[in-house]
Amino acid sequence: MSIIQVENLEYVYGAGLPGATRALHDVSFSIEEGDFVGIIGPTGCGKSTLITHFNGLHRPSSGRILVDGQDMWADPKAIRRFRFMVGLVFQYPEYQLFEETVYKDIAYGPTNMGLDADEVRRRVLMAADFCGVAESWLEKSPFELSGGQKRRVAIAGVIAMQPRVLVLDEPAAGLDPEGREMILSQVKAYHRESGSSVVLVSHSMEDIAKYADKVLVLQEGTVAMYDTTENVFARAQELMDMGLSVPQVTQIFLQLRSMGIDISTDVYTIPYAVKTICRALEERGLSGC
């Protein structure tokens, strides 16, 4: 069964005011349990608006969203239940830290869930471990940490709720390459080990190609493509027309093809690129790998 099912979602900002804008329209798709879905789209296409619908921070102007088969807005008073099922990590989540210690901050979500102290402790340690938050930080003030460390604490604060869907909005924005790699591989590890679904919003085609199984392309507030990563990046020209791009490594293969070299272009990760090049060389009787 789909863990998240979106049906004909429409959302209008500032309805009834001068300058009301329709951020989303005719959005329908579903995310299965255990999927790793990447969301891409040009700036202002409604990505952030869409993901805040997943845990009920915005109420659809029309259409509905089913989480685990239940209509989110059937009973607006029970909306908090869905917030624990769908964990949302906003852009620059380090600005939401507020507690005296890192431990207390990570424990904020689980405590709000009404869990007992032992369970909260277990979850905080689990989440800290997943996000690479060292045990020695736990008693420090979150404001003593560096930007990248704060970011990991903030993500741990959401993972500690053990949501069935983890939604991340640009979790690696503004980090150095090492920090990016670290956070995303930890998210991937969490996905693998917990079996929960992950939705990743990113502007980096490389990150999407590396981590996502499926890609949703949003354009002007509606779904332009929703398919497996291979199939989406195979439509390179369409993506580029939207002002998006394909991973750099795919661009190299497209360039090779246009130079008249007979090589497949369904390449979007570096290891697979190496394999494809080796195979192509072998086919031509050349060695080099």
């Binding site: 805040t52 917030r83 906003f90 989540p93 600005y95 939401q96 904020y108 709000n112 709720m161």
Partner: peptide, 13 residues
């Protein structure tokens, strides 16, 4: 609003 949303997402009531 952004911070309120972030805390609501962590179950703030």
């Amino acid at each position: 609003e952004k911070i309120m949303n972030a805390q609501k997402a962590r179950g703030a009531d």
